[in-house]
Nucleic acid binder design. Structure first.
Length: 251
DNA sequence: CTAATCACCTGAAGGC
DNA sequence: TGCCTTCAGGTGATTA
């Protein structure tokens, strides 16, 4: 915040979706926010909206001496600092838009929003019938819960990932609601989860990978009961759970 | 409407 | 060592 953009260099064209006919050079960075998995940089007349997808990294350098083969976009600031976007798999996106509602039109309510109280959560949960993990992963309903945090939240709540939403009791739903908030806040406090690529803006690793209870622990003993953690495929995504702590269809 | 599958990409890891 | 397959923090388009 308070930096001024001097120049933007695009190294991989598909990373940058410029919905405007101009580049925000000479613009101030007035604020930063987040909605779901989108990072929003507030400029003078527009916004840069960033989604890291699988392997995106935002790293701030005080010189541009660190370009590597995965550098996709670089913003040079008047101060001499560089905002670099690296992305091995090229899935990440940076949008340049003027519409302040650009992100909120795409996603549902942010999981950590104060407006998502329990009654609203429960209402959403009961508004459609689908597997609970599918529900949690649907960014158009509740935004910000990814594959790792969905598995972790369900484990803490002792809910099987394939449980249908209409079979979840109000008591279980309350636990899940609280655990989602707890997990997300803890992950943020620990600076994120570095499985392989995630880096903080300083270039460091996150810390939450050391606190995971089920994600990536296939075949290892459950920390709570000692049973072997199972891994299944759900909606094409690896899904980890403890068959003993999270029995099927029990609410 | 939902669910399943593929497409987008690269690199690491495992099997043989 | 080397080749081939599978898998990965996600989403969006297409198909069923």
């Amino acid at each position: 915040v308070n930096e001024v953009i001097d120049d933007i260099t695009i190294h991989w064209h598909k990373t940058f979706l410029n919905f405007e006919s101009w580049l925000p050079v000479n613009s101030h960075i007035n604020g930063l926010s987040r909605n779901g998995k989108y990072i929003i940089i507030e400029l003078d007349k527009s916004y840069l909206v960033i989604h890291l997808r699988m392997t995106g990294q935002i790293i701030i350098h005080n010189s541009n001496a660190f370009p590597d083969q995965h550098l996709r976009l670089s913003i040079k600031m008047k101060s001499g600092n560089y905002f670099n976007f690296y992305d091995a798999r090229k899935f990440g996106r940076i949008y340049h838009v003027c519409d302040p509602e650009f992100v909120s039109k795409k996603v549902g309510i942010d999981a950590l929003s104060d407006n998502l109280n329990f009654s609203r959560f429960y209402e959403l949960l009961k508004s459609r019938k689908k597997k609970i993990k599918t529900f949690l992963m649907d960014q158009s309903i509740i935004a910000g819960i990814g594959n790792i945090y969905a598995d972790e939240s369900l484990f803490l709540s002792k809910i099987h990932p394939e449980t249908l939403t209409d079979l979840i009791s109000e008591k279980k739903a309350k636990m899940l609601y609280e655990n989602i908030k707890t997990i997300l806040k803890a992950a943020i406090k620990n600076m994120g989860t570095t499985i392989s690529d995630y880096k903080t803006t300083g270039g460091g690793f996150g810390g939450f990978q050391n606190k995971l209870q089920v994600y990536g622990r296939k075949g290892l003993p459950c920390f709570s009961c000692g049973s072997e953690i199972q891994k299944i495929k759900l909606n094409g995504r690896g899904t980890h759970f403890c068959p003993s702590c999270q029995p099927e269809n029990r609410s």
